[in-house]
Amino acid sequence: MLLESVAYARPDTVAEALQLLAENEDAAPLAGGQSLINVLKHRVASLELLVDISRLEELRGIAAAPDGGLEIGACVTYDELDHSPEVRSAQPMLADVAGHIEDQQIRDAGTIGGNCCLSDPTNNLPPLLVALGATMVIASSGGPREVAASDFFHGYFATAVGEGELLTSVRVPPLAAGASAGYSTVAVGADSKAIARAAALVRANGTIEEARVVLACVSPIPARHAGMEEALRGRAAEPAAVAAAAERIGADLEPLGDAHGSAEYRRAMARVVARRAVCQAIGNGGPQHG
């Protein structure tokens, strides 16, 4: 498949990139390109200008604070997340999930920023970043602004990044004492297109003190499940209690069915992955990749 005619520019700074994006109505940033180039190849969307931001040094770094907080540049690749000692140490689940995105070639090109800005409900990182309480830093001509990950995703292929703006980094706060993350996927094949995903962040000390449960693929955006979170709070950190809490997931979900999974199956799988993600977080299950 071949793209429609399109212009290409490669700015040297974020400021130049913002200017190009602001000046051209049909411009889009090109980072890893692992989704955008497919969209253009299939001529699903058409653009006038691609602004290549993949080499901007300002977007390529991983900074670790002494407390374990991370600031990850938007153009850091999945492979870099997977192999970063800082990420491995501070947020092992983030490294692990990034290391199971599709394949080596995609991990070598795809970026954390692209994974979020596409806002494809099947993407790997959004539910995890919501669970981890990440903050998204957006640059615009008026200066930077910050948006909580939980407010970043607006719908299918829509985010808080407005026209002429650019996601520049993702800040991930340190894990609180006693907190741990879990992640579970049901996918078509190994490390492939997801049917249901869940990410969890659980603070427990024999008893679950606080739990965040974020479901993905079952709604347009990754969403915390308040019912299950509430049912977990104050319960014993063990599988039976988690399973009971997961039963709260049900008719409140209205997933769309498609060739990869019916709505009924996705709803049932949301329950399974939520349970598994929480169990993993409390240390009762191994890594759950599908």
Binding site: Y8, L30, G33, I37, N38, D79, Q105, A109
Partner: peptide, 29 residues
């Protein structure tokens, strides 16, 4: 393929393994 799924076009660019159907020629500059 035309979706970056098959890897037949894999090459190494600046030490990274990439699918050359998922990269534009000007990006190789």
């Amino acid at each position: 393929c035309d979706t970056g799924s098959c890897g037949a076009c894999s090459v190494i660019v600046d030490g990274r393994l990439v699918k050359s159907c998922m990269m534009l020629a000007p990006q190789a500059d």
